[in-house]
């Protein structure tokens, strides 16, 4: 029973407790860039989840074979392979999404969430746990992207998934769908999460970098980027 509970906690870990975007502050670039419309946010989230689960499984299966010294290039190669697969699938079956995500689809390769999970989790745990961890993190990422993009689409374009929900007579806050709106929504959303955390008395210290930064291994976590 406890083993089963353990599996569930691995899965749910990424959704709230260690939400990659709002609590670990990883993968900020796609979070800000593709969340102009709810559909794009969802698509990006699903694509990244697929890569995350697959790469976590493969890296975990190979963890005893990959020499420690070349582990980062090896991880990157595995991740890049799955990203290429996703690129081809999206291009073949969802042309609209392909043009909406643009360069951010291949850039899943350098998404810190994926390399970070490979380094922090998949390289130390078995295949099943790694898959669950990837799935949980992916759901957490997708959920946050969906939330951000829903806020931005409703306020900026008055619609959700392309369906108009705010009457035309009300002016749109068009800045919400432009780049500054991304920074603003992200900042306010994070402040909100911190507010709730403080109320619940479990504030988490946020720092960009070493916790999830895949390069931390190279600079020995001296925080030289701070």
């Amino acid at each position: 029973m406890s083993a089963q509970q353990n599996k569930i906690s691995v899965l749910t870990n990424g959704i709230i407790k260690e939400n990659p975007v709002l609590r670990l502050v990883l993968g900020t670039c796609p979070t800000l860039a593709v969340t102009t419309a709810a559909f794009n946010g969802l698509g990006m989230g699903v694509a990244a989840t697929f890569v995350l689960v697959c790469s976590n499984m493969v890296i975990s299966a190979l963890r005893k074979i990959i020499p420690d010294k070349v582990r980062l290039p090896a991880y990157i190669t595995v991740i890049a392979t799955f990203v290429t697969i996703v690129q081809m699938l999206v291009k073949a079956y969802a042309q609209d999404l392909y043009s909406a995500l643009g360069v951010f689809l291949p850039l899943i390769v350098v998404n810190c969430i994926i390399l970070g999970r490979a380094e922090m989790f998949a390289s130390k745990n078995n295949v099943l746990d790694s898959a669950l961890d990837g799935l949980g993190m992916g759901i957490g990422f997708t959920f946050t992207l969906l939330l951000m993009s829903a806020i931005r689409e409703i306020l900026g374009a008055g619609s959700l998934f392309g369906v108009t929900i705010i009457p035309e007579s009300i002016d749109r806050i068009s800045i919400m769908t432009t780049p500054p709106g991304g920074f603003l929504t992200f900042g306010v959303l994070m402040a909100l999460v911190i507010f709730v955390e403080t109320k619940l008395g479990q504030k988490k210290k946020r720092a960009i970098g070493c916790e999830g930064c895949p390069s931390a291994g190279v600079c020995q976590s001296k925080g030289e980027c701070k």
Partner: peptide
């Protein structure tokens, strides 16, 4: 800034304003 905005959130909000200037 207000307590819950301290740190990253206020940094992001000021990045938004910097970004507006570039528009």
């Amino acid at each position: 800034p207000p307590k819950c905005f301290e740190g990253l959130p206020i940094t992001l909000v000021s990045a938004a304003i910097t970004s507006i200037s570039f528009m």
